[in-house]
């Protein structure tokens, strides 16, 4: 296979991994927007919280690096669960303290409050961990499957010699990332579609007042939305740490912007749209980084966002029909 094609395949893999963690963050954005129409600017910073808190938990446990045996199969999921619990709770607390009193205020009020929370969180991270690039130990074992003899022999039976694919790598970390993100996204979708709370969430998103009249405790639904959204962002932050092995206090802003763009691209308020949008943005980022230059990626992504909003403001999966009542 030619070098160009190998580069392309590698870019697809990168795009999918980026899309994976963006999807987890984008889901929180889109769920919160769906229910209370708030662009939750602080959401990206919960992703950063997941990164920092999981780092702290790992440091407390101090497992052998890289993780193996029971640490890999027991400690790692336990840390992930704890991270989700803590990040979810933080998001819940933020909602109760800062956004809840503003439910009936003009739109600008909660939006700016969210921005205020975001800046506060970042300032707190900077004080807590220092305003520098923080290394995240390489807890997760890294092995390139492309060099694994079983994989090589499997592909050679198909008539492909993957030892020549020098550029392409697919590691245990990639597998881990997909292994966490894809099931979580699927679970959440099922949760929203099938469970009672999920149905109540959809009902509240459609029409909050009507849902309230039907006996749905909307406040509880909003609270659970914040919790679930926060938990997903938290685990995304931990996955990022294990995958990229470094981060800093502003990482949430950057990731948040991209995830938010994904949510808008897919049709904000739409769960499947957020996932689709995340993978599209992931791909665009990977391709733009590689073929145009990473310094242009921001321009490309935001340019696409603007064009999308101008020509199809409802997003890819959002409905185009909206009847405005007079």
């Amino acid at each position: 296979m030619s070098i160009d094609n190998q580069v392309f395949i590698q870019n697809v893999i990168i795009g999918l991994t980026v899309g994976g963690y963006l999807a987890l963050i984008a889901l929180g954005y889109t769920m919160v927007y769906g229910i209370i129409e708030l662009i939750n600017f602080a959401h990206g910073d919960l992703f950063a919280f997941g990164f920092f808190i999981s780092l702290t938990i790992f440091a407390e446990i101090n497992p052998e690096i890289p993780l193996h045996g029971s640490d890999l199969y027991f400690t790692l999921p336990a840390v992930a669960l704890l991270t989700m619990l803590l990040t979810g709770s933080l998001n819940l607390a933020i909602d109760q303290i800062a956004y809840k009193p503003l439910r009936k205020a003009p739109r600008l009020a909660p939006l700016l409050t969210a921005v205020g929370i975001s800046f506060m969180l970042e300032a707190i991270y900077a004080i807590w961990k220092g305003p520098i690039q923080i290394p995240y130990p390489r807890y997760f074992p890294k092995e390139d499957y492309m060099e694994n003899e079983h994989v090589i022999s499997f592909f050679s039976k198909l008539g492909m010699d993957i030892t020549e694919w020098r550029i392409v790598s697919f590691t245990t970390k990639d597998l881990f990332l997909f292994g966490v993100t894809i099931p979580l996204v699927a679970l959440l979708t099922l949760f929203i579609d099938r469970t009672r709370i999920g149905k109540a969430m959809r009902a509240s998103a459609q029409d909050r007042e009507a849902a309230m009249m039907m006996g749905i405790n909307v406040n509880r639904i909003i609270a659970s939305t914040f919790f679930v959204g926060g938990a997903l962002a938290g685990v995304a932050g931990m996955v990022w740490g294990l995958y990229i092995n470094s981060g800093r206090f502003t990482m949430g802003f950057e990731a948040g912007l991209m995830a938010f763009t994904s949510a808008v691209l897919g049709g904000i308020g739409n769960i499947r749209g957020a996932v689709l949008g995340a993978f599209i943005i992931g791909m665009i980022k990977a391709m733009s980084d590689s073929y145009i230059g990473s310094e242009w990626t921001r321009v490309v992504i935001f340019g696409i966002l603007i064009l999308m909003l101008v020509f199809r403001p409802s997003g890819i999966l959002g409905s185009t029909q909206s009847i405005e009542k007079l």
């Binding site: 503003l102 921005v115 205020g116 506060m120 970042e122 300032a123 900077a126």
Partner: peptide, 24 residues
Amino acid sequence: EYDVQSLRWVFFGIGLIVIMIFRP
């Protein structure tokens, strides 16, 4: 010094929340 600098946004964050809640 950086702590004081980054406290700036803590100030504005708190200020925003307080004003938005009590004097929107």
